[in-house]
């Protein structure tokens, strides 16, 4: 197994840092899957029995890396799966905020398997460069466990709706979290997204209107059709864990990203942020069972 990648563009390094920073807010550990065209960061959901990803992040190789060499486990499976503490990678990468000239990421074996980051910093005086090496201990995931981290495939969403700016949503959900632990996410076919909490004391909902609808499954047998004049309105809802939802909103401090929200009625919610050609991050929230 061999892996070596080189970044020379400081902007790309900073993008990588901000992605890893976001991921480190979602979970303690993450799985890095390296294939010849893409690098994936997968965050497994700790709760569920059969491990299903909570977040799925894709980085295209040609956007970030100048050089990229990979020898996978075998010729048939030219991939590597690693597991490590996300915060460690975020902390080690944080130096690229300074004047980093190049960043090399390697898989090495130094007593334990390590992800080695070699950073070349331009010194303030511009005389000589500083060399910085960080070794992050990693765990190699065996071939037989790869299935735990397969990409979840969903294509039966009842609705996919564009999300408004995430910052105000975060502020609202933060307050909602203090009152309830479940959040009802719903969207209708007129481009309205609602976030709602219901408790014994209070019903609280926030509505965002005039959002772009990317797809809407028409004619589904939906019980919650509202009959107050607008007979054509149909609503898709799902109830999810508010803490996880907020975690995603906190972690998503990515610039230039478009976020969409997709809902399977009564089953799950998917949030997907995408910067075309550079990054895609998906988070999956399953329906709360109660």
């Amino acid at each position: 197994m061999r892996f070596r990648a080189l970044l020379v563009d400081n902007a790309a390094m900073k993008d990588l840092l901000s992605t890893v920073n976001s991921l480190s807010k979602l979970s303690k550990d993450c799985v890095m899957r390296i294939v010849s065209r893409k690098v994936y960061f997968i965050i497994p959901d700790e709760d569920t029995g059969p491990r299903k990803p909570l977040a799925w992040c894709e980085l295209p190789v040609n956007f970030y890396f100048k050089e990229f060499n990979l020898d996978g486990v075998s010729q048939e499976y030219n991939e590597i799966y690693l597991c490590f503490a996300t915060a460690m990678l975020a902390k080690s990468l944080s130096t690229v905020k300074q004047n980093a000239k190049s960043l090399k990421i390697k898989l090495t074996n130094k007593q334990t398997p390590c992800l080695t980051l070699e950073i070349e910093l331009a010194s303030n005086e511009g005389l000589q460069n500083r060399q910085l090496v960080h070794d992050i201990p990693v765990e190699i995931i065996a071939r037989k466990n790869w299935n735990d981290f397969a990409e979840p495939q969903f294509n039966d969403f009842h609705v996919s709706i564009e999300m408004p700016h995430l910052k105000p949503i975060k502020n609202i959900v933060e307050r909602m979290k203090n009152m309830s632990h479940s959040l009802i996410v719903s969207a209708n076919n007129f481009g309205r997204l609602s976030l709602q909490i219901k408790t014994n004391m209070v019903n609280l909902s926030a509505h965002f209107t005039n959002l772009g609808i990317q797809s809407f499954a028409v004619g589904q047998d939906n019980e919650s059709t509202v009959g107050d004049g607008s007979a054509n309105e149909s609503i898709v809802t799902a109830t999810i864990d508010i803490k996880k939802f907020l975690m995603f909103l906190t972690g998503m401090q990515l610039n230039h990203c478009r976020t969409t929200c997709s809902i399977v009625h009564g089953k799950m919610v998917k949030l997907a942020s995408e910067q075309v050609g550079a990054l895609s991050l998906q988070c999956f929230f399953t329906e709360l069972s109660n």
């Binding site: 080690s92 010194s123 500083r130 960080h134």
Partner: peptide
């Protein structure tokens, strides 16, 4: 603890 923490190294030239 070797397998737990990050090991870091920075190399500085005498000119620094």
């Amino acid at each position: 603890s070797i397998s737990k923490g990050i090991r870091s190294q920075i190399s500085l030239m005498p000119a620094e």
